[in-house]
Design a protein around this nucleic acid. Structure first.
Length: 329
RNA sequence: GGUCGUGUGGCCGAGUGGUUAGGCAAGGGUCUGCAAAACCCUCUACCCCGGUUCAAUCCCGGGCGCGACCU
């Protein structure tokens, strides 16, 4: 089994630190494609999914099935004998965010390169993917839960007023109709004032990554149909049980579960008796479609900013394009 | 057959004699430490015909459709 296919040797020989990204909306088949590429070219997967990082959130977040037979030494999550990084890394109680992801993804990446494997970033969280792949720099002011909680009670108008009084210039470059954005802006300003350590924009620069991205973007109707089929499967696989368990056994508060959105949000509401199964299913389906749409918006915008992607409409096409990219590196 | 009621954009649903309710869906978009989150934009309709009127989706008459009740 360790006798490798001709394609596999290819990886060992090439010196470039190249990274392939498989992106796309939910239910587009990213995971399948990534695993098949990894199998063919001796790769490892870095998951880029803001919900799959959490332990116990399996069916609802669409994790690939874990290998239970494998006795591999790797600490990574294994599926189809392929290591998956950044899956199951923290408890759902823990706060996680882009910056943490950036750091961990980079360390996973270094790790994979050191073993001369092909890293494959796979996921639908566009914000995280872009932050990681483009080494985006964030102001070094970490979220302040207490402050946020306090500010959340205020109206958008009050928040805006406060922001204008503190930093009138900031307003121009901000989406001021969104309270969350104003809160973060305030958070940065207030902390800069109190703990004026170092210039928040200064940070070690990382050398740019050499990567190419494939976006799987099936026609809307097909995607929506897949979403529904997949949702039905998830119910059959015991997704409701999973969420019940997260609350009653893992003691995750309902409010926390709701905040995860989609399946976690709607099933929680159903478990609390607020809505019937049918209503929950309908609302959830609707929300997943909206989510898929937003994901598409993200990728289109990213491309408009100057990044070129290979857009494909099916898994097969994705595999063909991946083959071209990798074999002609 | 009769009586009463009703007919608004893909759906729900207010309303008015002349300046376009609203919600949902749909589509588009924003995003620099909550991103499966949060937020923004677009989508001028009033069943048909005739009449009244400067002007009708709104008033009157007729037709058609739907609903309820009566026979």
């Amino acid at each position: 089994m360790s006798k490798i296919l001709p394609e596999n040797t290819f990886r060992q020989e090439q010196e470039k630190n190249f990274l392939l990204a498989i992106l796309g909306p939910t239910a587009s088949g990213k995971s399948d494609v990534a695993i098949r590429i990894a199998q063919k070219y001796d790769g490892e997967i870095i998951s880029c999914d803001s919900r799959q990082v959490y332990r116990g959130m399996d069916i609802g977040s669409g994790k690939v099935k874990k290998d239970t037979t494998a006795t591999n030494i790797s600490s990574a999550f294994l599926s189809e004998t392929i290591p998956h990084h950044l899956i199951d890394i923290i408890s759902p109680q823990t706060e996680y965010n882009v910056v943490k992801f950036q750091k961990q993804a980079h360390s996973a990446l270094r790790n994979i390169f050191s073993r001369k494997k092909l890293p494959i970033l796979c996921g639908g969280t566009g914000f995280w993917a872009q932050a990681f792949l483009e080494n985006q720099i964030f102001p070094e002011i970490s979220p302040d839960k207490k402050l946020r909680k306090m500010l959340e009670k205020k109206s958008r108008e009050e928040l805006l007023e406060k922001l204008i009084s503190l930093d009138p210039q900031k307003v121009a470059s901000l989406d001021i109709s969104n309270p969350l954005k104003i809160i973060r802006a305030l958070e940065i300003i207030l902390h800069k004032k109190t703990s004026s350590k170092k210039d928040p924009t200064s940070r070690k620069t990382v050398s740019p990554l050499d990567w190419k991205g494939i976006i799987i973007n099936p026609p809307r109707e097909i995607l929506y149909k897949n979403i529904e089929i997949r949702l039905n499967q998830r119910f059959e696989e015991g997704m409701i049980e999973e969420i019940r368990n997260l609350h009653y056994n893992q003691k995750i508060p309902w409010s926390r579960l709701e905040s995860f959105g989609l399946e976690y949000r709607w099933i929680t509401r159903h478990l609390l008796g607020k809505i019937s199964f049918e209503e929950m299913r309908e609302k959830l389906l609707q929300d997943i479609r909206h989510y898929a749409k937003r994901q598409g918006t993200w990728f289109r915008r990213w491309e408009r900013q100057g990044r070129v992607f290979s857009w494909v409409s099916s898994k097969e096409e994705a595999l063909a394009v991946a083959k071209d990219i990798i074999e002609y590196l």
